[in-house]
Design a protein around this nucleic acid. Sequence first.
RNA 1: CGGUGAUUAGCGCAGACUGGUAGCGCAUCUCGUUCGGGACGAGGGGGUCGUAGGUUCAAAUCCUAUAUCACCGACCA
Length: 574
Amino acid sequence: MRSSQYLLSTLKENPVEASLASHRLMLRAGMIRQVASGIYTWLPTGMKVLAKAINIVREEMNRAGALEIAMPMVQPAELWKESGRYTKYGPELCRFKDRKEGEFALGPTHEEVVTDMARREIKSSRQLPLCVYQIQNKFRDEIRPRFGVMRGREFLMKDAYSFHMDHQSLEKTYQDMYDAYSRVFTRMGLEFRPVEADTGSIGGNHSHEFQALADAGEDIIAWSDGSMYAANIEMAEALAPSVARETPKEAYTKEPTPGCHTVDEAAAKLGLEAKQVLKSLVVRGEEKEDGTHSLVMLCLCGNQELNEIKAGKIQGLSSPLEFADEEEIRKFTGANPGSLGPIGFKGRIIIDRTADKMSNFACGANEDGFHLINVNWDRDIQDYEVADLRNVEDGDPSPDGKGTLHLRRGIEVGQVFMLGKKYSEAMGATVTDEKGQSVAMEMGCYGIGVTRAIAAVIEQNHDDRGIIWPDALAPFQVVIIAIKPTKSARVHDAAENLYKELLQAGVDVLYDDRDERPGVMFADAELIGIPHIVTIGDKGLEQGCIEYKLRKTGERENLPENEAAAVILKKLGR
RNA sequence: CGGUGAUUAGCGCAGACUGGUAGCGCAUCUCGUUCGGGACGAGGGGGUCGUAGGUUCAAAUCCUAUAUCACCGACCA
């Protein structure tokens, strides 16, 4: 491709709304342009990268034995009502009516449509297992799209679905997909970790996320330095500390703590550390017939954080977990949030494993402006349950007993689920087994956020000059920069010759033939992130040389003019 | 959905308080000089000032409504 016939669309200045490096660079490099909130056009440079990413995904899915299909983006509401998700999915599902008042939705995911397909097409257990996939735009009406394509509303996703006679077969395909995902992200040049994950609103019972490591990530993952253990912090189990409680001191007493609403304020007033103060949170339990909720108190060590995912899974608690509002709390306890505690709380009390080891601690008195000190479990509070309620922290022991946990931020670029029979049962996707019985199929589903993965690659591979693409995703493998070819026939001829040679060899090469000053061309080449930069100018040609520079390291090399094409091909691994 | 802020040329911004012929930098076009890391000079083109009402002799500017966007939070495969 010649630059003069291409749409480079690079920006010299930083777009003001883009705070994240990948977002900023995708705009500056002329990859994407925003059309509406969370909705983007992909310009030629972006599209070339996207096409290469799609190709990697497609090759690895095909290699893993999945079959490519295409399902509609517009889906009848009927199917969503069948699975029960039409009401459950919430406003993220974009609903609309056609001219005949028929109800439809834009597909945010395709479990319903694929299960409908399966129940029509799969008639015999001999057709199983079956794994199908598609690469298609999804639409989710996110509350707050941000960071460019990292969290867009319309985005490209590879979604795969598998169908099985039994759980054992599902496990095999799950592992095949897991392995395929590892190959995909490795080929994309991502530094990533597969981690144990929550299943969220997709449902199911076993799941891994593939997290690209990046400080800009929205997720936090916990990993062990002594084993392969890694999990999303939503899932990572916090073990009970192995210390014993201290013996209780004198009976508890009430202390005034006026104006103290947070653990830190109360601790400071009482002359204690935050970890000696109990954090008491009131959440909603089950909904009662009159629409109100029973209230449950969750107690944590004052310096630790509640994990809402874990709490939401406890029997009898609202799921997803809802906090009680201030009015409910006042009505039930007689005090405002900030002065709550387990003593005198007339409801279910669940305490965290670490809080269970506290002794002679302080907690709210259920009376505004007062805390209690020297409180002890069992002696002062008898009726409580112990559960894992908190987020793990850096330095916690690994749940598998090997090593210590550390925290890192990650970008979720893929997730694999074992769905079980959730959709097949709801929608009657059954096959006949060898005993002649009709049984619902086991299902798995597997997603890759293709556009998000590209943003993650940039997040991991850039410097202050621009993007540094791995060869596999680069919009062009090589760029030829000719220094003033209009002034030097020798430069012009050398550049044209090399361009033609590389084209003939099938290399994806950009020949910057614009009549620009060299600095402009160097800056664009580095901003766009082309891995191999070739400069042809009189200065080099006088020595019979063509100059080569590797974008990633900045390492330079002079190539003899007549061997240049061959050396470059070798660098590309040909 | 709450909080904050923004909307003036393709991009980044000034002008608004104090109403009176719409400006700057970058980009773009033309000409010239330059020419190995985002050149310089001269000249040109491009904007119903988000939209709709209102006040006024006169509105980018004041008032009202509304839309869109961004950031923070809550939310979320």
